[in-house]
Amino acid sequence: MLVAERRMATIDYDLELKRAGANATGGWRRVLFLARRHVLGAAGLIIMTVFVFTAIFANVLARFDPLTVDAAHALARPSAAHWMGTDSFGRDVFSRIIHGARISLAVGLGSTALGGTIGVIVGLTSGYLSGWFDLVFQRVSDILQALPLLVLALVMTAALGPSLPNVIIAIAIPLIPTVARVIRANTLALREQPFVEAAKSIGMSEVRIAVRHVLPNTLAPLIVLATAQLGSTILTEASLSFLGLGIPEPYPSWGRMLSESAAEYVRTAPWLVIFPGIAISLAVFGTNLFGDALRDILDPRQRG
């Protein structure tokens, strides 16, 4: 009895309720509550916000023109003028990294949006129609997924030629089956739901059912997947550029900044390798952290 009383007496109702998030309703309070519960996710969100902000305001933030060659200051060490030093052409590394964020973001968002859209259409059709279309889709996606993402993108850019739109397309294509599979699985489950049957019973067309009843209910997993994929698209772009098949000169891409300097200057001017490396890692790390937290919050299977 004594033990029980002691155990019960120590309950602080307000504290327990606060922990459960009872007063975290509405707008900012809810965001703050979630941020406290998912600290890493919040960190990811901050990194992503900085990343996006940098990309948007690159012109204002950059202290030098990223393309201006200044042979007098080539390979300068980090200093008050050049915070991250200069490269072999005397271009300011800090400014190039800031502008590089733009490229990374454009490629990341562009390819995710393109691959996501096509993936949704294919997945929805495949899951909803089933039959031969579904069979063909499944086999094609098996083949696509058997090839490494990077190799596929390499072949694509090699064939299409390196340019920003081509890089986006090359990265988007391997994304299609990944997205389509998730959407297809969700569609198959939703198709059996009584509310879809109810829609059929009022004589609704299949296309309208797919768009009005099935698609909106797949949005949560889609957002989670898109966030998770954003990181890997940024990484793929960096890898492609590193291999010389990404964004062409003279635009600053983090991947190519690495490849230009890695072999030659890693000993003599390590800042040329370190800073682009940190930029890539941070961007990918940030999106992944945020994606994980988003999955925890949005995915009903993870929720109690």
Partner: peptide, 12 residues
């Protein structure tokens, strides 16, 4: 006098 409560995000 059994009492069991749940602390949830919509209250006690």
């Amino acid at each position: 006098n059994l009492r069991t409560v749940f602390f949830t995000n919509s209250g006690l």
